Simulated assay, not measured.
Amino acid sequence: MLLDNHGRKINYLRLAVTDRCNLRCFYCMPEDGLNWLSRKELMTYEEMLRSCSLLIKMGVEKIRITGGEPFVRKDIMQLLTSISELDGLQELSLTTNGVLTAPYVAELKRIGVRSVNLSLDTLDANRFLAITRRDEFANVMECLERLLDNDMEVKINTVVMADKNTQDIIPLVELTKELPVSVRFIEEMPFNGDGHSYSGIQWDHIRILDEIKNRYPAIQKIPDPLYSTAYNYHIPGHKGSIGIIAAYSRTFCGTCNRIRITPQGILKNCLYDNGVLNIKDLIRSGAGNTQIEDKLRAVFNKREKNGWDAEHNRVINPDVHESMATIGG
C-alpha cells in the first residue's frame, strides 16, 4: 500500500499522453491553440510504460489515460494495450472528447477498458461549435452511441460555465432518464492557457445542484464511491445518475487518492501544484528503478494537505499560462 504523509492511500494515476487536442475549448486554451510540446519533450511510450509499471508495483491500482486528446497521438492503442497487460493493474480507463474515438470502442473493450469519460459540454450543435470552436458535435454523439452499444460504463463530463452552457444543465440531466450514463457537472477551473485572470466561479457545486432541484425536486443523494470526487445523485425512475464535482471548491481533498503525470513527465501530487518531480528526466539520466522509487516516495511524503495549500505554495511563472491540456484532464 502506498500512503502519503497525511495517511491517504495513493492508488490512482492519471497519465496524460499528449498536450495536443483537436478541439479548442475556450475554457482550456486560446483559439489558436498552445505552444505544443516538441516530440523530444514528450515522454515516449516506453518511458510511460516503465513509469506505470513501477507505480503499479508501488501500489497504484487504477490508471486513467488523458490528454490533451489521447487519440491524436499516433499508435495510442499500442500503448493502451501494453498498459492493460501490466501485472497488478486492476482498472484501465480513458477520458476523451470523442471526436476520433468511435472506431476504437470495440478494441478498447477487448483490451479491458470498461469505463470511458466523455467530455461533452452541451447537447446543442451550435453551442458546441461556439464552445469548442470546431464542428465535431456529430462525431462526439456517434462516439456516445457506440460506447453505449458496447455496454461501456459512460460518464459524461460537463464543465459548467456562466453565460455559455447553463441552459444545458437540465437537458443533460434528462439524458439519464433513458440512458444508463452518469452525467457529471464540473466547476470551471482556472486553467485556460491564455493568462486571463480568474477570480472564482459563478456556478459552484451548490448552485448547480439547486438548478437541478428546481426542475427535479425528488432528486436523491446516493452513496459516493470510495475516493469519489463527485457528489452523486439519482432521480427516481431514471436509468442513469448525476454527479457534481467541486473541482474549484476542492471539497474532496481529504480523501484524494490520485497523482498525475503530465505529457512531459512531470509528476503532480495535486492538480494545483507546480509539479514535484520530473520522471522523464530521471529515466533519461539513467536512473534505476530503486532510485526512481526512492524519489517518488520522498515527494509523496511531502504532499500538500489540500488544493488550496498547493495553490498557495506554488511558484508562479508569469510567462507560463497553464492549460488542462498540458496538465492532463
Results as ranks from 00 to 15, higher is better:
R8P: 03
T18W: 04
D19F: 01
C21L: 03
N22C: 07
N22F: 02
R24A: 07
F26T: 01
C28I: 00
W36V: 00
Y45A: 04
Y45H: 07
Y45C: 01
E46H: 10
S51N: 03
L55H: 13
V60P: 10
K62W: 01
T66V: 06
T66I: 01
T66S: 12
D75T: 07
L80D: 06
S82N: 14
S82F: 00
S84R: 02
L89R: 03
E91N: 15
T96C: 04
I111W: 02
G112N: 04
G112S: 02
R114A: 01
S119P: 08
D124K: 12
A125I: 11
A125C: 13
A130M: 09
R133S: 05
D135M: 06
E136Y: 13
E136D: 14
E136M: 12
F137D: 07
E142H: 15
R146A: 12
D151A: 08
E153P: 00
E153H: 14
N165S: 08
T166D: 09
T166M: 08
Q167W: 01
I169W: 02
P171I: 05
T176N: 07
T176V: 00
E178C: 05
L179N: 04
L179S: 03
S182Q: 14
E188K: 12
S199C: 13
S199V: 10
I201N: 01
I201Q: 03
Q202L: 13
I206Q: 14
I208L: 03
N214Y: 10
N214P: 02
I222H: 10
L226F: 13
N232H: 13
N232M: 11
P236N: 05
K239T: 07
G240A: 05
I242A: 09
G243H: 07
G243F: 03
I244A: 04
I244N: 04
Y248K: 04
R258P: 05
I259E: 00
R260M: 00
R260D: 00
T262G: 00
P263H: 01
P263Y: 08
Q264W: 11
L267G: 10
N274W: 05
G275Y: 05
K280V: 01
L282A: 07
G286Q: 08
T290P: 05
I292T: 02
A298R: 15
F300I: 06
N301P: 13
K302A: 14
G307F: 09
W308E: 15
N313W: 13
N313C: 13
V315C: 13
D319M: 14
D319F: 15
E322T: 13
G328T: 03
G328Q: 06
G329D: 10
